[in-house]
């Protein structure tokens, strides 16, 4: 079982190591993110994620922009005027590893699967690049890797964070969490992380940081069934490019099939009636 390195940064908190069978994940505490982007680089180095485009995005210190096949971690930066001063909010975004994952549900090849760690992984050797997972994801995490020539085997297929599946299998924590200098990214068993996050939130509220909130820590405000990666944010989710209430479209698949069946029945009835009328 993968282990998490280093103690949590909060006083009084202890390191909780996952044991076999635990669902594991990330708690990303944006209130202690220093925006260094070590997570982005450590991820790229471990997973051989290519550098596709070197360009200036004109959005504060963010030149990554968003998660994609070539950016599995993305640190967002936004600046705000606050109480006469200024605030600069940073957060390391990542695939949420939804418990009810639309990308996984809709994948027609089985390239995307749920691992023994309860994470969601794309198998680059299986994916045929059908593109279905891309609009299915409610967080806009997935894209197809395009235009990269040095790893032909992994181009034109969908790619995203694997939570370093290979490292987890080998008993190592994900590269981003290990690198994170301030442990803004914390890896561990999810129940323990959720409890820790709640305590951290309580502390922030006591300190008067009213804007602090947890995002995706529980299932109350979303349908994704809980997330393998959840966040402590300092502003509303939209400021971090997050949906307020993420959906899992496949949750309503039954209704859709029913509607399709009804539509098919109507068509059948129509065609049948037409055929019958034509008998005259």
């Amino acid at each position: 079982m993968a282990v998490s390195s280093g103690p949590p940064p909060y006083p009084g908190e202890v390191l909780v190591q996952p044991v076999a069978g635990d669902e594991v994940g990330f708690f990303t505490d944006s209130s202690i993110c220093i925006g260094c982007k070590a997570c982005e680089v450590a991820c790229k180095q471990w997973n051989n994620v290519p550098v596709d485009d070197i360009r200036y995005l004109n959005s504060s210190y963010d030149n990554t922009g968003e998660l994609s096949a070539n950016s599995w971690r993305h640190v967002s930066f936004f600046e705000q005027k606050r109480d006469g001063g200024v605030a600069w909010l940073m957060n390391s975004d990542v695939c949420k590893h939804c418990k009810h994952a639309a990308c996984l549900d809709v994948c027609p090849t089985g390239a995307i699967f749920r691992t023994e760690f309860d994470t969601v992984v794309v198998q680059a050797d299986v994916c045929n690049g059908c593109g279905y997972c891309i609009p299915a994801c409610p967080f806009g995490v997935l894209t197809r890797r395009e235009g990269v020539v040095d790893q032909p085997a992994e181009t034109h297929v969908a790619q995203k964070c694997t939570m370093c599946y290979d490292r987890l299998k080998g008993g190592d924590e994900p590269a981003c969490a290990q690198a994170c200098p301030t442990k803004s990214i914390q890896f561990g068993p999810l129940p323990a992380l959720r409890e820790r996050a709640q305590r951290r939130l309580d502390v922030l509220h006591q300190e008067g940081v009213d804007s602090a909130r947890l995002y995706l820590a529980d299932q109350s405000d979303n349908e994704i069934g809980g997330a393998g990666a959840f966040f402590l944010l300092l502003d509303e989710p939209a400021k971090y490019r997050y949906p307020e209430r993420p959906i899992t479209p496949t949750k309503r698949l039954g209704g859709m099939w029913l509607a399709a069946a009804a539509a098919a029945a109507v068509a059948l009835a129509g065609v049948g009636a037409a055929a019958a009328s034509g008998r005259r």
Binding site: C36, A38, A42, A179
Partner: peptide
């Protein structure tokens, strides 16, 4: 190349530059 958890200085952590050492 990744952080050395044994180091009492860094405790296995690296910044983006350190993490880019292989690159």
């Amino acid at each position: 190349i990744e952080g050395d958890p044994d180091s009492p200085i860094s405790r296995g952590r690296l910044c983006p530059k350190g993490a880019a050492s292989r690159n």
